[in-house]
Write a protein that binds this DNA or RNA. Structure first.
Lengths: 207, 207
DNA sequence: AGAAAATTTAATCAATTGATCAAAACGCTT
DNA sequence: AAGCGTTTTGATCAATTGATTAAATTTTCT
C-alpha cells in the first residue's frame, strides 16, 4: 500500500493499523488485513502468532503515537499558557491527520481494558509530570484558579478530542461535509483555548 | 433478566440492548443475546428478522434515550444560565446510569454512519431549536460572548461526555476505582459548568 | 373439548472465521 | 551448482457465525 521497499512484516503492520483503526478489532478479519497488505493470509500468523498478538503490537504503537507527543510537551520547560496552547495545537494536528485515533483507542480499551498493559506506564506518566508541579506553583502564586491538574488536563483533552469522537454525529447534525467540519473544528479550537485560559488565568488577582 | 412479566420480544430487546452496549455490534453474537435473554436462539430471528434489524431497533432506542431529554431541555423556556446548567446535569445523570452510552453510539456511528438514518431527524433538531434563537438574542443584547450556538452546544456536551468516553483511561491513569472516578467526575462537572458560564457571561459588559 | 394460530424448541445449514500444515519458492553461503 | 535456512504459497482444518427448517408445544378462539 505504501512504498514497496518495506519488509513484509512492516507491510503487515501498516495494513493492520489501517484496517484495525477503521473497523476495530472485532470488525476486522485476518483476511481483511492480508488483502490490504497484499500478502498471503498465512503470513500474518507467520510473523505475528495470532490476530490478537498483531493487534496488541498495533495497539501499543497507536497508544504511543497518542501519548508520546503529549508527554514531551507536558514536560517541556515553557510557560503554562504556552504549554496549554501547544498541547491543544498538538492534539488538533494529530487528530486532523487521524480523526478516529481517539475513539478507536477508547473503545478498544472499553471492550478490553487489560489491553492497556503495554502502555499503562505511559498513561500513568501523563498526570505525574512537571505539569502537575507547574500547576501547583501557579496556584500558590495566585496566577491561576486553584484546581487539581487532573481536571485541567481533562479540560484540555476533552475539548479537542470530543470534537473528533463525535465527528460523524456533528457532520450529520449540522449537515457538514469534510471541509465544513474542518472549518468548524478550527474555529472551535480557538474558542476552547480562550475559554480554558480565561478560566484559569483570572483577569484580576484580587490582592 | 428483569421482571418475568415482560413479553419475549421485550426480553430480547432488553438483553440485546445490554449485550450490544457492552460488546458492540461486531463483538456480539446472536447466541450471546439469546443466552442473556434466556431464550432459544431461533427466537431472535422469529421476532426480529436478523441481527442487523434487531440492532437497528436497539440503536434507535438508545439514540432516542440520548437525545430526547436533551431536546426537551433545549426547548424549555428558561434562562440561558439555567438551561446550560440543567443540560449538563441531565447529561451527567444519564451517563452515571449508563457510562458507555455515548462511546457506544459514537463508535457504531463511526463504523456505519448510515445507521443514524432512523434518528437523524432527532439529531438535526438539536441545533435548530429555541436554543439557537436564545443564544442569538443574548448575543444581540450583549449578555454573552458572540459565538455560534453550535460551538456552545459542543462545549456543553464535550466537557461532560468525554469524561465518560475516557473513563477506563482516566481510571487507569489516575489509579481510581469506581467510587474514585465518580468523585472525580462530580468535581469536574462543577468546574466545567463554571468554566463555560464564566466564558459566556462576561463579568463586565463594557458599554 | 377441539381446531387453528402463534410460539418455542432442537437440529441443522452454508458461510466465514482464525489458524495450521506441507510443499514450493526464494535467498544466501560455500 | 549444491545445500540450507528462510519466506511464501495454496489447501485445509475445526470452530463459530447468522440463519432456516420442521416438529413440538402453547395459546387463542369458538
Amino acid at each position: 500500500m505504501k512504498c514497496l521497499t518495506d519488509s513484509t512484516e512492516e507491510r503487515i503492520k501498516e495494513a493492520a493499523k489501517m484496517v484495525f483503526l477503521e473497523k476495530g478489532f472485532d470488525g476486522t478479519t485476518t483476511r481483511d488485513i492480508a488483502q490490504a497488505a497484499g500478502i498471503n493470509s498465512a503470513l500474518m500468523n507467520y510473523y505475528f502468532r495470532s490476530k490478537e498478538k498483531l493487534f496488541q503490537s498495533i495497539f501499543n504503537d497507536v497508544c504511543t503515537l497518542m501519548f508520546k507527543g503529549m508527554l514531551e510537551l507536558i514536560n517541556q520547560p515553557i510557560s503554562l499558557r504556552d504549554k496549554i496552547s501547544k498541547l491543544m495545537d498538538h492534539q488538533f494536528q494529530m487528530m486532523m491527520q487521524n480523526p478516529n485515533l481517539t475513539i478507536f483507542i477508547m473503545n478498544e480499551l472499553r471492550l478490553n481494558p487489560e489491553r492497556l498493559y503495554g502502555t499503562i506506564g505511559m498513561a500513568k506518566q501523563v498526570p505525574e509530570s512537571i505539569f502537575h508541579q507547574q500547576i501547583e506553583d501557579a496556584i500558590a502564586q495566585g496566577i491561576i484558579t486553584p484546581i487539581d491538574s487532573h481536571h485541567i488536563l481533562t479540560m484540555i483533552i476533552a475539548n479537542i478530542q470530543f470534537l473528533f469522537v463525535s465527528k460523524p454525529m456533528t457532520m450529520l447534525a449540522q449537515g457538514l461535509d469534510e471541509a465544513g467540519f474542518n472549518a468548524f473544528a478550527t474555529r472551535h479550537m480557538e474558542y476552547v483555548k480562550d475559554m480554558i485560559c480565561e478560566y484559569l488565568f483570572k483577569p484580576e488577582p484580587v490582592t
